[in-house]
Amino acid sequence: MRVWLWLLGLVVVGGIGVGVYMLKPVTGPARDLTLVGDATRGAYLIRLGDCVSCHTDGRGGGAELAGGEALKTLFGTFYAPNITSDKTAGIGSWTLAQFSNAISNGEGPQGHLYPVFPYENYTLMSDQEVADIYAALMATTPDSKLSKAHDVGFPFNVRLALAGWKNLFFAPKRFAADASHSEQWNRGRYIVEGPGHCVACHSPRNMLGAIEGGKELTGNPAGGVGGKAPPITTEALTKGGYAVESVASVLSDGFTPDSDVLGGAMGEVIADGSSQWTDADRVAVASYLMGVE
């Protein structure tokens, strides 16, 4: 009897320990919140981060950044929220600290944010960039349209459970350049892994929705936000007839090397995002994906 009591005690203590670990806060390096943001730079970063196509219901005639259409995933249907400067329906009442916490740590005023919002990638941005985006969003025209509530069933609708997901899969940090590669290559890698979050869509996910380590950019055949995504590794792109110039070109106009046109979710990404990047950024992304310095 005494042995069973000891075993039960160990199980209870172990369970408490696991619970404490899984619920502990997950935060990255502290940011400098005294920086003054530049709304013009921030407006470009909004395009670089593909915020417009997700947070705008284009097919429904919604105002820019006033909330997106349905984003269907294996875990339920999500609706990108209104991120205009409206103080009630949007994020106009948010402080820079609250916005930074959402971007950097996946934590909003209402609690943990679902990783369908790619904070795993946005956390790589610099302190100045976060301040710039905040300034740009606070300068948007306010829209009073309330966004729809997520349609997510149990247990995925329990936001506290996201603390465990973060402890298992999320490691917030800032981007660090690789000195063994060129500035252009590093810029491309930063966009792909950071604000452009190409890796978030074009990588396979495990049963809990986390990217499978070591398989980044190898495609997401199971489908995620926006549907299935093809591989965009150097090997896959080369096989598809791409070179640096054609990758940069397709990010601008959507035309593939075989004269097809990219539509669907990628078409929206190009129209609202990458077509409005600088030529230098498109070439940087193309160079990184094609493995060229």
Rank of each mutant, 00 (worst) to 15 (best):
G164R: 07
G164T: 07
W165L: 09
K166D: 02
F170L: 03
A171S: 12
A171L: 08
A171V: 12
K173E: 09
F175V: 09
A176R: 10
A176P: 07
A177I: 09
A177W: 07
A179T: 15
S180C: 07
S180A: 15
H181C: 01
H181N: 04
Q184T: 15
N186K: 12
N186P: 15
G188C: 10
G188R: 05
Y190A: 09
Y190W: 09
I191H: 05
I191S: 08
V192M: 03
E193Y: 14
E193P: 03
G194I: 10
G194W: 00
P195F: 04
P195W: 10
P195Q: 06
G196F: 04
G196I: 13
H197R: 12
H197T: 14
C198G: 01
C198K: 01
V199L: 06
A200Q: 10
H202N: 10
H202G: 11
R205E: 04
R205W: 13
R205Q: 07
N206I: 11
N206Q: 02
G209W: 04
G209V: 03
I211N: 09
G213D: 09
G214L: 07
E216L: 11
E216F: 08
E216A: 12
T218V: 06
T218R: 02
G219R: 13
G219T: 12
V225H: 06
G226S: 02
A229I: 02
P231I: 08
I232K: 03
T233Q: 03
T233D: 07
T233S: 11
T234K: 15
T234D: 14
E235W: 07
A236R: 09
G241H: 12
Y242S: 06
A243P: 00
A243N: 14
A243G: 09
A243E: 05
A243D: 15
V244H: 06
V244W: 08
V244S: 07
E245S: 08
E245P: 00
E245V: 00
A248S: 13
A248Q: 01
V250A: 06
V250P: 01
L251V: 01
S252N: 14
D253F: 08
D253A: 11
G254A: 06
F255G: 11
F255Q: 14
T256I: 04
P257C: 00
D258I: 14
D258G: 02
S259M: 12
D260H: 15
G263K: 06
G264R: 06
G264S: 13
A265L: 12
M266H: 13
M266T: 09
G267D: 01
G267R: 03
E268D: 14
V269E: 04
V269I: 10
G273D: 03
S274T: 13
Q276H: 15
W277T: 04
W277Q: 03
T278D: 15
D279V: 05
D279M: 00
D281K: 05
R282C: 00
A284N: 10
V285Q: 06
A286F: 05
S287V: 00
Y288S: 00
